[in-house]
Amino acid sequence: MGLLGWLTGPPRDVTSRDEAKKRLQLTIFHDRMEVMELPPDRLNALRDELLLVIAKYFEVDIGRTECTLEQDEREVAFVANIPVKRLRGS
């Protein structure tokens, strides 16, 4: 609970307005994915291929690699966070 939450007391019950908004956001996100015709396993394939390429140039920390699709304004963005340990010698 943040400071504001602490001042205003414990959170009230989730309202149907909150519920509608949350469900709608999730549904619309999935709708947009579907329209892009990008099923989740394709995303995993993309991540693996991407890592192969990057690993040619960097030593990467595979365990901490994170690839997600995120909502940015009205666009869906592919976001990859790939921690690198060091540059590989050429």
Binding site: T15, D18, A20, K21, L24, Q25, I28, R74
Partner: peptide, 19 residues
């Protein structure tokens, strides 16, 4: 209904649709 949190408000819809 918006005031009593039984309906989405203008800000909710604008945030979701982003136009």
């Amino acid at each position: 209904m918006v005031q009593s949190n039984d309906m989405m408000g203008v800000d909710d819809v604008v945030e979701i649709l982003n136009i």
